[in-house]
């Protein structure tokens, strides 16, 4: 929907005539096979490419984050297993000590009985 202001813009921004002799000057340059006066800037990266690059960067970031999370989780599990192993070793040690004490006590009773 075009309002009054947009209408004014259309009227105010109408085309202006090219300077006198413009076409002659262009034809002169074409005839002389002149180079462009201004270097053409490198081609703009198209929208599709921008999106593709953004998607690749996003995937790389997601992969990196996923990998970091996975490694952290593995380290946490390994630490847990290590702690469980240490607890198990302590329990086993204590049990073995208890068994050893009981054996020594039983040995001492036997010696007294024999005497």
């Amino acid at each position: 929907m075009s309002d009054e202001f947009e209408q004014e813009l259309k009227e105010g921004l109408g085309r202006v005539p090219a300077p006198e002799g413009f076409a002659d000057r262009v034809m002169g340059r074409v005839a002389r096979n002149e180079r462009l006066r201004f270097r053409v800037m490198p081609q703009r990266v198209s929208y599709a490419w921008q999106m593709a690059i953004a998607a690749m960067v996003l995937l790389a970031v997601l992969f990196g984050v996923g990998e970091t999370v996975h490694r952290r989780e593995e380290r946490r599990r390994a630490e847990l297993v290590q702690r469980q192993f240490e607890v198990a070793m302590r329990v086993t040690g204590r049990t073995l000590n208890g068994v050893g004490e009981r054996i020594s006590r039983a040995g001492m009773k036997d010696e007294r009985g024999e005497q």
Binding site: R15, P17, L36, R37
Partner: peptide, 27 residues
């Protein structure tokens, strides 16, 4: 020529620069 010159003029605001750019466009 009027269309190309006008686009350049409205973008650059300078008649000399607009003519140079417009000539380059046609070359």
């Amino acid at each position: 020529q009027s269309m190309v010159f006008s686009i350049a003029l409205r973008m650059l605001g300078d008649r000399g620069a607009a003519e140079e750019v417009a000539q380059d466009v046609f070359v």
